[in-house]
Nucleic acid binder design. Structure first.
Lengths: 240, 240
DNA sequence: GAAAAGATATTTGTATACAAATAATCACAA
DNA sequence: TTGTGATTATTTGTATACAAATATCTTTTC
């Protein structure tokens, strides 16, 4: 049994239960994007259409749609005769995406900010809890998972749907860089920093200050990018 | 011979000449997006896969990829048993997209602004010329075409590729609203306003002030949205 | 005449066979 | 041994037949 199968039991069953083609597409797209983001499929991995279709219990045709959208997202690259390969995140792309994401996060606080209601506060309270648990026992997978889940929680702070869509595409375009770059010895430190960010933002949401939450997030994005570039240089120095 | 064929002569020939599948996709995607944006395919139009495949001289398979990306862009909606229909732009969507676009245009001037070199100045000079000609003899199609072309010229003012990509998707999501809402009696007035915008921005680019160009653009986006909502209300009042 | 039920037609979704492109392998010669 | 050419294998791209879903038309019944 492969790792991904332990994560996503019986995708074939879910697909069979889905009523419409759109639902089936959504399942396949989400599963594949998640596997790429969680490094179940590290950069360079070949995603064979035939193998995936077999696992999902369908033919290549509907699967190809999911792969084509992922290609438009920049997560994979398909070439005839070569294969469909998970893309790598290069530093230039990372810098540009982070530059833009910082500004967009600012907009999350100012453009149609959500009214912080009880359900939202409950959600961020659960994020706070997960952050504290993760800090107690750092773990790469759990870190990546919380990073993704917290992003989606943060998305709820704006009502502007296009802004949400755009932010999501940008997030998934580079989020796996953390798992690829953080060395084991720095994991606890990174987890602690991330945990602090979540706690601070959760506090801001609890008191209903969405704008403050956005500013904190922006600051952490900026510092996070700086640390990522340092990790990248350290890795390059080690290799060279 | 249909109208679109007079616009895009011999797509089938272009597709046959293309070397790779990616090029063929790019041709089909661009042609279809352009036809939707220019209202060759007004909202509600059914885009039959079989008919389009026939026109392009290919089978449904490669065509479907283009339609699927257009669906992800929000320009068409495919439903089994119904068809692939060009979407309509509703006012809520328009408002959210314009809100975001205004902020993004601000970023065009501040985030990695391009150095205004000679080729860029030449491009904006040609835009100025087209604007003046359009003002002399207002025309719906020419107005829409210049709107699209000027957008692409403006895109060159930032080096940030993700920002370009995002801005482009947002632009095409709503740009046909102008052709659908402007009444014939207001065409000359709208052309004059748009022409003024181009002249002002071209001036800013000519003196090398990209930031100023962005601010002008933002102001016109804001006023443009206001006029669009007024047109929409006027149309609604006429219908009701 | 109207409404409902069924049959028919139309359209996208899916499966599959084959084509095209690339990569890998192997044979062979220098 | 190494390089080169041809051959084979692998993979995505394309064409096509069929399935599934929806809409439309027809018929029937009240």
């Amino acid at each position: 049994m492969t790792r991904s199968e332990t994560q996503d039991p019986d995708i074939a069953g879910q697909l069979e239960a889905a009523a419409t083609a759109q639902e089936r597409f959504q399942i396949m797209y989400t599963v594949l994007r998640d596997r790429i983001s969680m490094l179940d499929y590290p950069p360079g991995t070949q995603l064979s259409e035939e193998v995936l279709a077999g696992e999902f219990g369908i033919s290549r045709s509907p699967l190809r749609k999911a792969l084509q959208i992922l290609e438009a997202d920049g997560l994979v690259l398909s070439q005839q005769g070569v294969g469909t390969l998970v893309t790598d995140v290069d530093l230039d792309e990372l810098a540009q995406v982070y530059q833009l994401r910082m500004e967009l996060n600012e907009l999350t606080g100012s453009l149609s900010p959500t009214l912080a209601d009880d359900s939202l506060k409950t959600l961020f309270a659960s994020m706070r809890l997960r952050a504290e648990r993760l800090r107690a026992t750092p773990d790469r997978q759990a870190f990546a998972r919380l990073n993704i889940d917290f992003f989606h929680a943060f998305q709820l702070l704006t009502e502007n749907q296009p802004l949400r869509d755009v932010s999501e595409k940008l997030f998934y375009r580079t989020c796996r860089i953390w798992l690829t770059l953080i060395p084991d010895r720095d994991l606890a430190a990174e987890v602690a920093i991330f945990s602090d960010e979540i706690l601070a933002i959760a506090d801001a949401v609890t008191v209903g200050d969405v704008g403050a939450a956005a500013h904190i997030r922006r600051a952490h994005l900026s510092m996070g990018f700086k640390r990522l570039t340092e990790m990248q240089q350290a890795e390059g120095a080690q290799a060279g």
